[in-house]
């Protein structure tokens, strides 16, 4: 049986085709998010079908997740990204007990119990502090791509302290730091640390190892280390961190959609 998962995130749409009989990913892909997200998702879905050499009729279920999940009307059902990331990460790394997911506008800390069920979770509310939006703002302000930002952060000897939690005010603070002659690597490393600090406040009471890091921001080198420092424990980047939500959605569309079911 082949199932599809679509994760309509704030910055990109991710999709996964999963073969439940052979228990493996047939195709995965992503596209930038924009208005008309249902059309974008449908195009991505078609592209993956083509890549895998499949017809739409061969797909037995489609589950949508992510903040735009309700806009994907061709999906059979919707499931929140919290449950989907838990299922996706648990499938890839069954020993995971804590998941830190940082996306474009969200950050979440999910704690798992035996079998991969969600035990508890925390999520940022109205504010974009501690999310990928923060890094994007810095990248745009410095006119640099993400790789360059990560490379700069690595060179830092003494990360700057960014005290503003608000993305808008932090931008002003960063400009001020640079104007005062703070080295660029220290400012960028400071931004990474401030995201990590914010996420650790969110995690508060429930970080039990092993901790896995997922979501688009996990792709940025240095972020996992920044999290390790504030959480004082090892943080591993989950395999295919951008796709764990879509994978979890595809798994949920399968025949036995219980998390932790080894038949998946």
């Amino acid at each position: 049986m082949i199932c599809a998962g679509i994760d309509a995130g704030s910055r990109s749409i991710k999709a996964v085709l999963f073969d439940t009989d052979r228990s493996h990913i047939l195709a995965s892909g992503l596209t930038d998010q924009s208005v008309e997200q249902e059309r974008l998702a449908a195009e991505l879905f078609e592209k993956l079908l083509k890549k895998a050499g499949l017809e739409r009729s061969q797909i037995s279920g489609v589950v949508a997740t992510g903040y735009g999940r309700n806009a994907i009307r061709f999906a059979d059902t919707t499931i929140t990204e919290i449950t989907c990331h838990a299922r996706g990460v648990h499938r890839l790394v069954p020993d995971a007990r804590t998941i830190i997911e940082i996306g474009g506008q969200d950050s979440k800390v999910i704690s798992l119990e035996d079998g991969g069920h969600v035990r508890d979770f925390a999520m940022n509310d109205r504010c974009a502090a501690g999310t990928g939006r923060f890094l994007e703002m810095v990248a745009a302000r410095l006119d640099m791509n993400w790789e360059k930002l990560a490379e700069l952060a690595r060179q830092s000897k003494k990360p700057a302290l960014i005290s503003n939690m608000c993305v808008v005010f932090a931008e002003t603070e960063i400009i001020g730091l640079l104007a005062d002659g703070k080295p660029l690597p220290d400012v960028v490393a400071g931004v990474q640390n401030s995201i990590a600090t914010r996420v650790s406040a969110l995690a508060g009471r429930f970080v039990s190892p092993p901790v896995y890091f997922t979501g688009g921001v996990a792709l940025q080198a240095g972020m996992a280390r920044a999290l390790e420092e504030v959480l004082a424990c090892t943080v591993r980047v989950a395999p295919q961190p951008q796709f764990t939500g879509a994978l979890g959605a595809a798994l949920s569309a399968g025949p036995a959609n219980k998390a932790g079911d080894s038949g998946l």
């Binding site: 929140t80 919290i82 069920h117 969600v118 979770f121 109205r126």
Partner: peptide, 26 residues
């Protein structure tokens, strides 16, 4: 934690739905 403005309704719904999904899964 919220106020009277509806701007965070989608985010609140996601958290509530995730809670209910956990309850159903159990």
């Amino acid at each position: 934690t919220t106020d009277y403005s509806p701007s965070d309704s989608a985010r609140i719904s996601a958290r509530i739905e995730a809670l209910f999904e956990t309850i159903h899964a159990r």
